[in-house]
Design a protein around this nucleic acid. Structure first.
Lengths: 359, 359
DNA sequence: TTGTATGCGTTATCAA
DNA sequence: TTGATAACGCATACAA
């Protein structure tokens, strides 16, 4: 992912002919309207509308005839018109900050999106994905407040970014990840990072390890602080020292650097809890470099259940995040808020330890 | 990515109070309308509309006063109303087949999406992402044909899936990847797989290798056949044997299996072109397993420039795909089609060889 | 239970 | 150049 500066650009090599596609939207032409259905069914538009929105009061017989007409004409209600009168768009925005978009390739994030989309597919909400450029956030703001969507889901890379929190009063918003500072009253769904870290650390303890170091994440990111806290708690309960801490920034390089610092301290280390798999990857390379065996000399547990884990040698034991469920839950919570169903402000999903070979 | 069956589900642990959010859309309440702007500016609605759509014929003076009113009221045009009269939604669908969604975590795919979103962010089109379940494709069809979007971009995993091709007559559609069978006249943008494979193979040849094997992709997928074809062409030109071919399905496991078969043939091999990095990864493990050195004994080149490549040992030389540009180009082509600007039916983007340590 | 009439916020046609 | 006014397709209060 390092080198590879592609020179690719607008090089277009044609082949087929390029028939000027007349103009404008093809589908919009001659779409059947509610009125046409009414005519065909021999009823009024109001009645058709009732059938479409399955209003309780309508004769079964007439209902069937209307449905037949609908089927025959292949009628499908015009969203814009409906939205205009309802004041509801049936659309939900998925806001992803540009900085996050760069690491869009993060499988965790990808799964979250997938979960959202899959859940929404079962409802009749549409997902409007938009990348918010940090440069001019007003554009996003305008879009969100412009009545284009009924609600929004904000996911930022390693969570904690609630810069759109203030919009929560104007528009239903659900965040992915705990906010850094306790927010007034924003909704969010998160994975239980503290519990996950505890599980990971206890696993190490159960293996008999007592010299357990950690490479923690940035302390200005909730997952960073929570995972460190979990590690501390587990160690505290076991009465084991929690002195061996080095910080990283969740990148492999920072993980490698932290591992070096840990090793260079000279003290004994028989286990490592890395706050994410990427940093564990960095640690792996340093460990190999110094001829230390995993898990023989040092057992290591990661966090995230990245793509790295399964293919690493040895395969990495790590804490799995239910990414897709996380996404689905965010969507579910948002839909509930939109529809006025009471929901808790914070929803937290459990992690699961995936035991492989490294610990 | 193998194990890890998370038991996570709907475990919700609350914390804050759950104030019933009244009901319905917050943003829709009391949004300023064009009429209000007109009133404030002391002009007619028509004039305001003209200013908004910057029609040429309108006094500079009056324009300013209207703009002032717009700013003061923080007016934003109602999309639904506009769409109702225009018959244009300013929305574009991104259709991703469910099977593709599963491998959503594919960084290549993710970058494509990113490219699309980024490009669209500069236009005033909205991106409606929808996962089409193979189970009932009618739902997607209805959505697409229901006048919800002005056009669609269809990306499927390893391309070639043009099952929505027939909709191309009713709605502007751009596909990612060359169709398997020559389609009537669908638009698509693709990477030049043949050229990429040629470049890769020629690189191997330039290194003096002459016993060049390949692990090809499925021959029912365009990239699979194109990359194999490219390899063959390069070999043919050099007058070198193209007998060493084994097929895989683009997965690491299949790559490993293919590598084993290749080695078990007993003939000499001094280089390998894997049709994608994932299969190269599988090959790597087998090579290591058998004590073969890379690139000493066997030089290997992959394709895709996956996450695997940079972190592999040795780092993988591979063919980079301009994923983001691909996405951007798809969006660009679609917008042109929608707006009636002539475009070539097929656009192909160049790849770039990324030389690292494996060849 | 069904139909009639009105309005949702814009754009477009036609006069002025 | 600007202003009335009529659609656009649908939902609903009200009348029947």
């Amino acid at each position: 992912m390092t080198a590879a500066e592609s020179s690719a650009a607008g090089a277009a090599s044609g082949s087929g002919a390029a028939p000027v596609t007349g103009a404008s939207s093809g589908a919009a032409r001659g779409m059947p309207t509610l009125e046409m259905v009414a005519e065909l069914a021999g009823v009024s538009r109001a009645t058709v509308s009732r059938v479409v929105n399955d209003s309780p009061k309508v004769t079964p017989e007439i209902t069937r005839s209307v449905q037949a007409a609908i089927a025959e004409l292949n009628y499908v209600p015009n969203r814009a018109a409906r939205s205009l009168v309802n004041r509801r768009t049936q659309a939900i925005a998925l806001v992803v900050p540009e900085s996050t978009a760069k690491v869009f390739a993060d499988p965790f994030f990808a799964s979250v999106v997938q979960g959202i989309a899959l859940f929404l597919a079962e409802t009749d909400y549409t997902l409007n994905m938009l990348i918010s450029s940090e440069g001019r956030p007003e554009k996003t703001r305008r879009y969100l407040l412009g009545g284009n969507v009924d609600g929004a889901i904000v996911v930022s890379h390693h969570s904690g970014d609630h810069s759109y929190a203030h919009l929560g009063q104007a528009l239903p918003i659900v965040f992915g990840g705990r906010p850094l500072a306790e927010q007034n009253g924003s909704y969010y769904v998160d994975v239980d990072n503290v519990a996950g870290a505890i599980t990971a650390t206890e696993h190490l303890l159960s293996l008999g390890r007592r010299r357990i170091a950690t490479i923690a994440g940035p302390q200005d990111m909730p997952p960073g602080v929570d995972r460190l806290a979990g590690w501390r708690q587990a160690l505290g309960r076991a009465g084991v020292s929690d002195a061996m801490v080095e910080l990283g920034d969740f990148s492999p390089a920072s993980g490698a650097a932290a591992m070096r610092r840990l090793l260079d301290r000279g003290g004994p280390i028989d286990a490592l809890f890395a706050a994410n798999d990427q940093m564990a990857a960095g640690a792996f390379s340093v460990l190999h470099e110094r001829g230390l065996r995993i898990p023989g000399d040092i057992a290591v547990v990661g966090f995230d259940d990245d793509y790295f884990g399964a293919t690493a040698t040895p395969a990495l034991t790590t804490v799995h995040q239910p990414a897709a469920q996380l996404g689905a839950m965010m969507a579910e919570v948002l839909v509930k808020i939109i529809e006025g169903v009471p929901v808790e402000r914070v929803t937290s999903l459990p992690t699961a330890l995936v035991v492989r070979d490294s610990a």
